[in-house]
Design a protein around this nucleic acid. Structure first.
Length: 700
DNA sequence: GAGATTCGA
């Protein structure tokens, strides 16, 4: 352990932390920052007045790093060194060093905004810029002032732009600690290939027949491309003349692969055999594959992004950033010097790639985060001026405010309501937490809990791919579902879970019905957690047992659907007159279709229900509503009335913000236009600002 | 009549 580079910098680190409330530490992979930093501070007495918290963006990382540190200190895990992740808290009153996911720390800060049990908070892997890390960075900036130098904050990262973060934390010091990496030779293509599958195929084969041993890791964008490339590689490798070169095994690697197939990449290849691993970006950060010497980088990644003006998500193939490209290349230099083949010219890398990946906070719906921040009740913070390292667009913040207003989480002035306060306690999207609140009044809390839990895990439910179990098939496979699923997907998800409940949570039942066991067990955990929180909020026992063909079933799930209509007030759609297309009822109407995977049934005339709520809009590339539920017009009316009262200006707290928007979004407008925009009344000012903003975006 | 990169409370 004495060889870890970070230990040679111990004195320097301690000196800096002693004299500064915030320190940024840039430590390349292999520097030992995740395991050593906490131990150094512990050794030097920083854990006597409080605990040392170390956040991780991923649960597995929190657990495995905690385990290693406990081992290095020779203590039992859960004693001096422990961890906390969702559903699992392995800490005790003895714990001095606590590893946790950043989501858990955010939850803790809801109960105790000053996080007073900690004397040190280390935000690790900050360069990944997860939504939660970004919010924590904003909170830390405030907390070091409030806690008046009895808190030390360290931001650590592999490749984060240290100067930017340092500037954010009022010019705090930046320490750089070298890593232990082998050199990686970068080879660029002369031009972008017309097909990166073909190009990867050719490059991989060239390496295989020509270069010495060492595994090949190929980065592709998704499951489809991976499967295509894997089968082509298998054909080509099989066709190679026997004995002309070593053997090769081809392994796909992506998130929807069942765990037992995923772990194959951790077993070393047999002698005289090369592994060719074809992976998504899961191999960029989440999984580390040993033995990789050659990396082939397509230069693309799939990214989910949210469009706040349409309220719609899309999954797009986009160019990676320089940070990602370097991360990928680094995967070749972990055990010895390696090579990285970039399937794009250096010009593309230099001129087209962004320096860093667009942070998640600028790509997601912010309703949940805004509600969370509002519920913290920080006296000195106005949410629209919350100090983010990279602020989200004001459009996105306004979208969040509108959503929250429509579901009664904030009032017309943007202040959090008592309902909103309770909603923030629940680890759910606001639409679902609002549904739970309402269901509690209507006596269908048990059903609503199940729906919320099922939707939290929906993608995890599908059976493993490759066994031709498509979603549609799944829906038809479930045997003996009571009638009623024609009302929509929410109801069917409910019935699936209740069926499982009646089968005593039997694992075999899941397998027989094409459901992922892991996913269903997760649903059960989530449901239990939500039940506990709801009981706390309701200040009394609730009937939360799953109850199959109970009252709700007999009444056509009317109460549940009514509750959903309130929770999804922002996600309503009305069927168009003469066909089965829908128009969303929001601030901006969209024409959308029911997703083909839906179980929603048409009536005898072939018509869908007049009104539905949807869980999500997804552009793929046509706009679809995914997971819909039939509702009744008279439940919709109050929502439409509320929509009319919506005043973004008031919600976002006044003129100042509108000016800020003008300033931030329209820096290159001719001065005259800004003056015109500023001269009108406030509505037309907002409108003018928005139009110009959109026009400018369109041009880009 | 489509198609799930990846994390997380």
């Amino acid at each position: 352990m004495a060889t870890l580079p970070i230990l040679q910098h111990e004195e320097k680190i301690i000196q800096t932390v002693d004299h500064n409330p915030v320190t940024v530490i840039i430590g390349e992979t292999g520097s030992g920052k995740s395991t050593q930093l906490s131990q150094i501070l512990h050794r030097r007495g920083y854990s006597t007045s409080g605990k040392i918290a170390v956040t991780q963006p991923r649960r597995v990382a929190a657990v495995s790093v905690a385990r290693r540190v406990a081992h290095e200190l020779g203590v039992q895990l859960g004693e001096e060194v422990g961890y906390a992740i969702r559903f699992e808290d392995r800490t005790s009153h003895n714990t001095r060093i606590k590893y946790l996911t950043d989501g858990v720390l955010l939850r803790e800060s809801l109960a105790n905004p000053e996080l007073s049990e900690y004397s040190v908070i280390i935000l690790d892997e900050a360069h990944e810029r997860s939504l939660n890390t970004d919010i924590l960075m904003g909170l830390m900036k405030r907390l070091v002032k409030v806690r008046n130098s009895d808190l030390k904050v360290l931001i650590t990262s592999a490749t984060l732009d240290g100067n930017k973060v340092s500037k954010f934390f009022t010019d705090c010091p930046v320490l750089t600690i070298p890593g232990k990496m082998y050199p990686v030779e970068i080879l660029y293509s002369k031009e972008r290939p017309s097909s990166y599958i073909e190009s990867s195929l050719k490059t991989a084969l060239d390496i295989h027949v020509r270069d010495p041993e060492g595994d090949i890791l190929i980065f592709m964008t998704g499951q489809d491309d991976i499967e295509k490339l894997v089968s082509k590689l298998e054909d080509k490798v099989r066709a190679l003349e026997e004995g002309s070169c070593m053997d090769a095994i081809i392994l796909p690697l992506h998130g929807s692969l069942p765990p037992e197939l995923q772990v194959r990449v951790f077993s070393p290849p047999p002698p005289n055999c090369r592994r060719i691993i074809v992976a998504t970006n899961i191999a960029e950060t989440s999984l580390t594959v040993d033995g990789v010497v050659y990396v082939i980088d397509s230069g693309y990644v799939k990214q989910r992004q949210y469009n706040p003006s349409a309220g719609m998500y899309s999954l797009d193939v986009v160019q990676i950033s320089k940070v990602q490209a370097n991360q990928r290349a680094g995967r070749a230099g972990r055990t010895r010097p390696g090579k990285c083949y970039r399937l794009y010219p250096s010009r593309v890398y230099n001129d087209e790639f962004l320096d860093a990946t667009v942070p998640e906070i600028q790509r997601s719906s912010l309703a949940g985060s805004v509600l969370y921040l509002k519920s913290l009740d920080l006296p000195d913070i106005d949410i629209l001026k919350f100090d983010f390292l990279d602020p989200p667009s004001s459009e996105s913040l306004e979208d969040a405010l509108k959503q929250l207003y429509l579901i009664d989480a904030i009032d017309e002035n943007g202040a959090i309501t008592s309902i909103g306060r309770k909603m923030a306690e629940l680890p759910l999207e606001p639409s679902l937490s609002r549904t739970l609140m309402e269901a509690n009044n209507y006596g269908c809390i048990s059903e609503a809990l199940t729906v919320a839990a099922m939707l939290s895990a929906e993608t995890a439910l599908l059976s493993a791919p490759g066994r031709s179990n498509t979603e549609k098939k799944r829906k038809h496979q479930i045997s003996n579902l009571p009638d009623g699923s024609g009302l929509g997907d929410h109801i069917q998800l409910l019935q699936i879970y209740e069926c499982w409940d009646q089968n005593d949570y039997d694992i075999g039942w899941c397998k027989d019905n094409g459901l992922q066991v892991r996913g269903m067990l997760f649903v059960r955990d989530v449901r239990k957690q939500l039940s506990q929180i709801m009981q706390k909020i309701a200040k009394g026992p609730l009937d939360i047992r799953a109850n199959g063909k109970g009252e709700e079933f007999r009444r056509g799930y009317r109460n549940l659907r009514k509750a959903l209509c309130v929770g999804y007030a922002n996600q309503l759609a009305e069927r168009k007159m003469h066909h089965n297309g829908y128009r969303t009822l929001g601030f901006q109407a969209q024409v959308v279709q029911v997703h083909p995977s839906s179980v929603l049934k048409a009536d005898d005339l072939g018509k869908f229900p007049d009104y539905v709520v949807y869980h999500e809009l997804i552009a793929t590339p046509r706009p679809y509503m995914r997971n819909v539920c039939s509702v009744e017009m008279r439940w919709v009316v109050p929502v439409i009335n509320k929509l009319k009262t919506l005043d973004v200006y008031k919600l976002s707290g006044g003129v100042e913000h509108v000016e800020k928007e003008t300033e931030r979004n329209l820096p290159d407008l001719p001065k005259k236009d800004v003056e015109v925009a500023a001269a009108g009344d406030r509505e037309s000012r907002i409108q003018a600002a928005r139009e110009r903003f959109l026009a400018r975006k369109g041009k880009k």
